[in-house]
Nucleic acid binder design. Structure first.
Length: 572
DNA sequence: GCAAGGTC
């Protein structure tokens, strides 16, 4: 038994197709060659395989893992003709519980050639399109970028949609037109208790109509009184969180601790390599049935901070089997702590924070929900309906250990009223307000957008964000909103100009800065996996489309440069 | 000097 660490090889163009040796467009059809990235790892496989009769692959059971398995076979074949796809077996497993591993070992399957083909396709499309457009754009912008440094203008099927999200939010804010609105604000009174209620119509964008409705109510008989229509108290829950995925961890650590996705993942990786937490790159939000979660909770009893809480889960019967999410990458379980880590471990501040978060989140998802009661009062004044509600929290449940989230009883108790009761109207006036533009984009929101649109994977989302920062397409700002400071992402002039330029070229309605293209490639790859498409036809389709886009771009170079220059001019 | 996907 031996190991690899990620991909063994990489695809690239031969020397004749180097940066200044050919025109960028030639890269769509240039030959590519597979080159060993780490000879030590590759040679180790070849050597270890020399005297074997058979090979068994235990890489991650996802698409890339399947391809890495194939790479291993290729290395193993080099000095041993007995190693073929026929003599290669494949273990199917997604976590390291003993019985699961034994089951996988006793029931091997075969490498999935379709999944391997899908990865080959992805690699080729990404390499050809990325290299071609990057060289073209870099050359095009050489003279224009102020001459400070010869910046690289890279294009990638993931980095551009990521940039697109940033520019899109920025534009929505810039182009936002505030609109005035009007509403009826009403407060009723019961035994010295004042209770503001909300108009069920929300607000209206027509002042005259709001005034008419208001006047109408005022003119009605008894307009100083309102009628309670209903008072309903219902039990309500605040659910314990799902088991932890990479994307959720990055979003939460951004929200709660203002950590970037990159810093969160880096800290989690260290914690994983030191054996403190499980593998940190996972999309799975369901724990395998056989896992001894109670045992893992028990290990946390040592802690001075959350030990007594962990003990209460195990000893007082408060432990709950976590909820089951709907996502599975078939390769890794949700992120969870492996052992308790005390001060002797010498963790950095960020690592401590992330470890504590992983533990508290794990304990939280093994905890009961928070429970309370919500009371809703509905009342009528004239022709109009209003409502208000209040919350009383009865059991804090998981929130006792998940101290980052708040769910509190309402500050003011609702007055005691009954259906049919007539209450005194303390105040009934027309208020007005203005609509507000969307808020600037936070990294947490950007991660959520990428995740929802299938841009990048759990392992790469953070890298794409870092990449567009490093390329100077976007920059981060600290903005204060009231009391809180938020770190937000905004496009630079370069980033904004690039997206605007791409949009102007048009590409026959195919947008290179929107997420649809990546998503459709992902869908095509899935079809390859399911046997409904072949590597060859997906490749031809994809490359043909990019070729057309590239042709349009070369014809309209001016548009790209102009839109950058105009952005600069508009800001100076 | 390019991509995105693994990984440490």
């Amino acid at each position: 038994m031996t190991s690899v660490a990620g991909h063994i090889t990489n695809n690239d163009f031969p020397k004749e197709f180097g940066w200044n040796n050919c025109s960028p467009v030639a890269l769509f059809d240039a030959p590519t060659k597979i080159k060993v990235e780490n000879p030590l790892i590759a040679d180790n496989i070849t050597q270890e395989a020399q005297n074997c009769d058979a090979l068994m692959i235990w890489t991650d059971c996802d698409r890339e893992g399947e391809y890495i398995g194939w790479e291993v076979v290729e290395q193993a074949k080099k000095r041993n003709p007995r190693i073929t796809l026929e003599s290669t077996y494949r273990a199917r497993f997604s976590h390291l519980e003993r019985s699961h591993i034994l089951q996988a070992a006793r029931n091997p399957i075969r490498l999935d050639l379709k999944a391997i083909d899908a990865v080959k396709t992805r690699m080729e499309v990404d390499l050809r399109t990325g290299a071609c457009l990057t060289r073209f754009l870099t050359n095009l912008f050489k003279g224009v970028l102020g001459g400070e440094k010869s910046s690289m203008i890279s294009y990638g099927g993931c980095q551009f949609p990521t940039l697109g999200f940033v520019v899109d939010r920025y534009k929505r804010i810039k182009l936002f037109v505030k609109e005035p609105f009007w509403l009826i604000s009403l407060t009723f009174k019961k035994k010295q208790k004042q209770c503001p209620v909300t108009w069920e119509r929300g607000h209206l964008f027509d002042r005259l109509i709001t005034t008419c409705i208001y006047q109408n109510c005022l003119r009605m008989e008894d307009s100083e009184m309102a009628t309670i229509l209903s008072v309903a108290t219902k039990p309500t829950s605040n659910w314990a969180p799902l088991p932890l995925t990479t994307v959720e961890m990055q979003k939460d650590c951004g929200r709660f601790f203002k950590l970037t996705a990159k810093d969160t993942l880096a800290a989690a990786e260290t914690l994983y390599t030191r054996g403190f937490i499980s593998y940190p790159r996972t999309e799975t939000d369901t724990f395998p049935k056989a896992m001894d979660l109670k045992g893992l909770v028990g290990k946390q009893m040592e802690s001075a901070k959350w030990g007594s809480y962990a003990k209460s889960l195990v000893d007082d019967g408060r432990f709950r089997q976590p909820r089951q999410g709907k996502h599975s990458d078939e390769a890794h379980p949700p992120i969870h702590p492996i052992i308790f880590v005390g001060d002797s471990a010498n963790l950095t501040g960020v690592q401590k924070t992330v470890y504590e978060y992983v533990v508290r989140r794990f304990l939280a998802c093994c905890s009961p929900d928070a429970k309370g009661f919500r009371t809703t009062i509905r009342l009528q004044w004239g022709t109009e309906f209003f409502r208000t509600s209040g919350l009383v929290v009865k059991e804090n449940g998981y929130l006792e250990v998940f101290i980052y989230s708040k769910w509190k009883s309402s500050k003011n108790n609702l007055p005691e009223v009954e259906p049919g009761e007539r209450v005194k109207v303390q105040k009934a006036v027309i208020s007005s307000g203005m609509t507000e533009p969307p808020k600037k984009l936070t990294e947490t929101e950007l991660i959520a957008l990428m995740d929802a649109n299938g841009i990048g994977t759990d392992a790469t989302i953070a890298e794409h964000i870092e990449k567009i920062k490093a390329r100077n397409y976007v920059t981060t700002l600290k903005v204060s909103e009231g009391r809180s400071k938020r770190q937000v992402i905004v496009p630079t002039e370069l980033g904004y100009g690039l997206v605007e330029g791409f949009n102007r070229v048009g590409f026959n309605n195919i947008s290179l800065t929107k997420p649809f293209l990546r998503r459709s490639l992902e869908e095509e790859l899935k079809r390859i996996c399911e046997g409904q498409a072949t590597r060859q036809n997906v490749l031809v389709k994809s490359i043909t489309m990019y070729k057309e886009a590239f042709a349009l771009m070369s014809q309209q170079k001016r548009l790209l440069l102009d839109s950058y220059r105009e952005t600069i001019a508009a800001n100076s």
